[in-house]
Amino acid sequence: MPANADRAHRLSGLLADNAGTLLQRWVQLAGAELQGRLTVAELERDLRELLDTLLPVAGRQAADVRTGADFTELNTVLTELSRRRARQNLTPTETASSVFALKQAVFELTEQDDDPALFRELITFSSLLDSLGLLTFEAYTRAREEVINEQEVQLLELTTPVVKIWEGVLAVPLVGTLDSGRTQVVMEKLLQSLVDTGSEHAIIDITGVLAVDTQVAQHLLKTVVAARLMGAECTISGIRPQIAQTIVALGIEFGDITTKATLADALRHALRSDGLSVVRRDQVGA
């Protein structure tokens, strides 16, 4: 359809010729939407970049956005913009509105023209912008998901410290919810630390664990047995009254695994089996 292509050139030409005023109007409209959450200079820089990459493909169909090779640059710019805004805590609506604001600016530019062909092109252009708006939504969600995943990894690292509380005694204070993934991390970290420090005692403190079900108990038991296989003794401490009730109600057997009420008790137990005892200084002589 050569004639169609020619006409499409007409809108593109019109946009390219008026790029300056278009940009100013777009910045104005998008700025009103954002209510001053971005500076005008910042917004103008973003939108200029967007407009520069958008103009060469302005005559294309909306369906080409995902597949067209010449859309790669525009997609990158748009994704980057959306990602940046996601990290600045702007809502996806605000980001998409910035894109949609261009429609208004273009309509104002072509209002006086009553060429039906141009009108048709405008419709096409409008749906192209709709697709781009949706793209920002997607990029926004992806960016947020990345943030969440990062935080999950950090949380995993943060919540599973293995600390040395005495010569040859390691402790793992567990906090939060235990699932198989986390228990696996705890298990590996604890066992590796046993080797690295040559410790013969490990204490898993579950004071901060909200709930214990059969699966969690199973994981804890596995950790204890694995530590035992390596030649270390593992104690579980900090079982809260409610959790003790649950464990009994579920019929979980801890077998010959030592369990203590508090971390302090577990430490005393570890020291005692090492042949040490803690006594008051004034009672030493007595």
Binding site: M187, E188, L191, Q192, L194, V195, G198, S199, E200, K222, V225, A226, A227, R228, L229, M230, G231, A232
Partner: peptide
């Protein structure tokens, strides 16, 4: 001197070592 990975594997296999004693080194 059992390595952590080996210990985990044995536990996952459900094997117990019976009368065997273990030590770190």
């Amino acid at each position: 001197g059992m390595r952590p990975a080996v210990a985990i594997t044995l536990v996952e296999l459900g094997l117990t070592l019976g009368n065997v004693r273990t030590a770190l080194d």
